[in-house]
Amino acid sequence: MAFVELAGVCHAYGGAGTPLAVENLDIAVEKGEFAAVVGPSGCGKSTLMKLATGLQFPQAGTVTVDGERVSRPVSLAGMAFQAPTLLPWRTTIDNVLLPLEIVRPHRSRIRRSRAAYRERAEELLAQVGLEGAGEKYPWELSGGMQMRASLCRALIHAPQLLMLDEPFGALDAFTREELWCVIRDLHRTTGVTIILVTHDLREAVFLADRVVVLTSRPGRVLEERRIDLPRPRELDVTFTPQFQTIVHEMRDHIIKARG
């Protein structure tokens, strides 16, 4: 069985009878896989995030994570969003440590062994290129750096599933590509399963093992495509004909589907 599996999932926010946000969604993500979900705005990408993490439960169909049907928040998941949502009254490192003050079993331990946890947070910050920025406040960091810190916060409790909701949407092109590489490296070194929700096809193709394209509301799977570009991928790969063919083909498909 896949690590994350949505089978025949229908969901509407307003309860039964209201327009569906997603319809008959079948998505399976293997352990350690990097999956990207692409679609126009309002295709239910954020709904997918909430369903897979147990913040919402589907009206029909089942969501399974790690062999267990989701019936409560999935604490083995970490999340990051387009807005870094760092707390301005905490230093960067304290922001990164925040999840450990919540999640079991760390919440009962963090008071006693804060030093050990801080060390771990500093390692993580170094991994994303934020060495020594731990004592700074979020507003002293650039947008890209805030996003890196937000990724660290999502990863501090060593989640097995990382859910990313358009994490690079608000960044400039260069910073975005830098962060693609950060995510790529984090995926390689931690082996975490990643589901990236985005509307950027290039981003999806560069990062993911598999790209799932959703239709506009109600979201359904329009196309699924395995990306066989060899890893590790460097940014140069985005300029190869092979890469561009994949992006073009998928783009054509999406445009056709929209009519």
Partner: peptide, 8 residues
Amino acid sequence: DVLKVLGA
């Protein structure tokens, strides 16, 4: 959401 997922 970030916190609720963690069981907050």
